[in-house]
């Protein structure tokens, strides 16, 4: 049976789409038939991050309205087998996502896919609520920063009261914390909330910690999800997170600052990766 996982945060710009791209790619690389859906109607960007922006013909809203079939709208990823992308519409507004329409599309996808990843828009309004409504699990993308943590707690409240599982009094949506843009150096200097602090405040299970990394920007420049680059800390951290999502144990890495050698300290910041 397909697992529906929403990637959400409340706050914008924390790494939902970046994480959706890498997590769906990781699941597909590990042999799971995976589809990732962009719920950000009007502001789609998943296509750009996954390098298929020039191949979009039909979109999610077209399928809901019966203007295209699912097979016409799904884009097969060229970099990864088993991976498909359902882009958002760029010209409609979020109200175009009806609950019945979304349910119908998800049911049809559930027949053939192992994982359905829902990339939520920012905010707590209709688009975000539709992205999380049918979820079995939720990945809460959070930055170690006050406004992001507060908004994550807000979205947790919505998952616990307005999701399908909450409304039907089923088992609750399984919640995972994904802490992104983490800088162990700044944590050690007392300038940034530590992973333990965020875990304690939000009181949810930790899926992974993605270190702040230059590779995230460079990979988005070229449309190659950062998980493809297993030389980078961010790529490795996403790979660990995907393994944990699949139920395997992986120790958490990149949580402590790397000791700078003599030369690095002498030429501070000039050659750090």
């Amino acid at each position: 049976m397909a697992k529906i996982i929403v990637i959400t945060s409340g706050k914008g710009g924390v790494g939902k789409t970046t994480s959706s791209a890498s997590i769906s790619t990781g699941l597909a690389l590990k042999g799971n038939k995976t589809v990732v859906i962009d719920f950000d109607v009007g502001l789609r960007n998943l296509d750009l991050i996954m390098n298929c922006e020039r191949r979009v013909v039909y979109d999610f809203v077209n399928v809901i309205n019966g203007e295209a079939t699912l097979n016409q709208a799904l884009i097969k990823d060229k970099q990864t087998d088993n991976l498909f992308i359902l882009p958002a519409s760029q010209t409609r507004d979020k109200e175009a996502l009806s609950k019945e329409g979304v349910e119908q599309v998800l049911n049809e996808l559930a027949e053939t896919f192992d994982y359905i990843i829902c990339d939520s828009p920012a905010g707590i309004e209709h688009g975000a609520q539709m992205a999380l409504y049918f979820a079995d699990e939720a990945i809460i993308v959070t930055n170690p920063e006050v406004s992001s943590v507060r908004d994550s707690d807000r979205i947790l409240g919505i998952l616990q009261s307005k999701s399908r599982r909450a409304e039907l009094a089923l088992d609750p949506v399984k919640e995972h914390l994904l802490l992104t843009r983490y800088s162990p150096e700044r944590v050690e200097n007392g300038e940034m909330l530590a992973v333990e602090d965020v875990k304690e405040i939000l009181a949810i299970k930790l899926l992974g910690v993605i270190p702040e990394s230059k590779a995230v920007l460079t990979s988005s420049n070229s449309g190659v999800p950062v998980i493809h680059d297993q030389q980078t800390d961010a790529g490795k951290a996403y790979d660990d997170a995907v393994e944990r999502l699949m139920g395997r144990e992986r120790p958490h890495r990149f949580l402590t600052a790397q000791k700078k050698g003599f030369f690095k300290r002498m030429f501070k910041g000039s050659a750090t990766a």
Binding site: R150, R154, L193
Partner: peptide, 20 residues
């Protein structure tokens, strides 16, 4: 050098408990 992270943690604990 002030430890601003601990200020952030305390402020968050209060506001999150209140909003919950």
């Amino acid at each position: 050098k002030k430890n601003t992270a601990s200020i952030a943690r305390e402020r968050l604990q209060i506001i999150v408990a209140h909003e919950r």
